[in-house]
Design a protein around this nucleic acid. Structure first.
Lengths: 208, 208
DNA sequence: TTGATTTATTGAACTTGTTCAATGTTTTTA
DNA sequence: TAAAAACATTGAACAAGTTCAATAAATCAA
């Protein structure tokens, strides 16, 4: 039996970038060589529940691909209230794109809501990928576009819909998220107080 | 004197893509040849006030760079209320990115609020640019990222701030827009009724 | 330049959502 | 497994924002 010493963060029994490779294949075709070259730029990191991947004021040094668990990306305003920008579960990317690309202090927190695992790539390595693997530039342009379209929809919904409707939309659109999140988190995402969410849930429950 | 017949949409006295070239130069360095090749893919279109560049249900066939005037990109919900996703003035891009990239019917309207002019590029020509001019792929990735960051900020503001504060932020952030827009348009952007905006304005005016 | 249309203001009644405080329930941790 | 911590629910008083209707002011089109 072959024993190789590692720091415990390595999984030598199978490829930990499997999920990532699958994810990329769903977007663009890459040769095996390209895929290896790109995925080798990532490092796995384990984050326990309630720990932070990023805190306000820090410069975001990574872009992350979630392979296990769930993160919330949120802001805390002057009055201390939390607004959740988005959640990231398995197969989602997580970063503060502003802080990461412009290397300025983040206004956001990124916190694990469950024991989680992410694959991280540094800015330098991502730049390397952009210049050496043109398809990767395309991949991220397309993904950013998709994320942007989704945020446009959410913006319009927030401008036009009532909290009841936004909650119903949320549980319909993200049933898997709904099950894994507390109502506090969902309320912070919807932009309402958790007490009011509770009343909405009550109203919905008694109405059927 | 030399007379050349054209359909009136051509301006032969000077390069109508001047603004666009300036804009691109601010983002990335291109050789003269690249710049010409890319800018030649655009066609100028004149849109009179209250006319539409795009209507709900149509597939958005263009990406546009505004050289004169002002557009609003908006959605009309079931109850008939309008939500403005963004405004585009000189030096801004305007399109329905979802409809354009995925070639599906738009949910948005794009309307000129003043007599306006845009430079339009088709999907085919943009694809051509992406494959033949790698720097253009980078340009649009970077621009989409910037737009996305701005929308993230707006999302957080809408979740956390009161309408009064959002209005004050708006006139501080976009003083030039504020002057050119009616309060109806601003209210639809802020996601409030124009009556309420009027009351906010009154409150602000009497408070100082 | 006038008549028509669009935009802005104001008030009253109403709806949506917040805040605070009290209480119960569930989950976590030692 | 007990105590602590986090989460959820409810009610009452309040604040933020909407709706409708009436009127004034500004702008547009002929």
């Amino acid at each position: 039996m072959l024993l190789i010493c590692n720091n415990g963060n390595f999984d030598t029994t199978h490829d930990m970038t499997e999920l990532l490779k699958q994810h990329i294949s769903n977007h663009i075709p890459l040769t095996n060589k390209e895929m290896e070259e790109f995925c080798n730029l990532f490092q796995k990191k384990i984050i326990k529940r309630k720990n932070f991947l990023l805190r306000e004021g820090e410069v975001c040094k990574f872009e992350g691909f979630v392979t296990k668990g769930i993160f919330r990306v949120y802001h805390i305003d002057k009055s201390g209230a939390e607004q959740i920008l988005y959640f990231a579960i398995e197969n989602w990317w997580v970063t503060d794109i502003d802080s990461f690309t412009n290397e300025r202090p983040s206004q956001l927190f990124i916190e694990a809501l469950e024991d989680s695992e992410v694959l991280l790539i540094s800015k330098k390595d991502k730049e390397f990928a952009y210049t050496n693997l043109p398809k990767i530039e395309k991949l991220f342009r397309v993904m950013t576009q998709k994320t942007h379209v989704a945020l446009q929809r959410r913006m319009i919904d927030n401008l036009s819909k009532t909290a009841d409707q936004r909650y119903l939309d949320f549980i319909e659109k993200y049933p898997q998220l709904h099950q894994r999140l507390s109502n506090l988190q969902i309320a912070a995402y919807l932009g309402i107080s958790h007490e009011f969410l509770s009343k909405i849930r009550n109203k919905i429950a008694t109405k059927r």
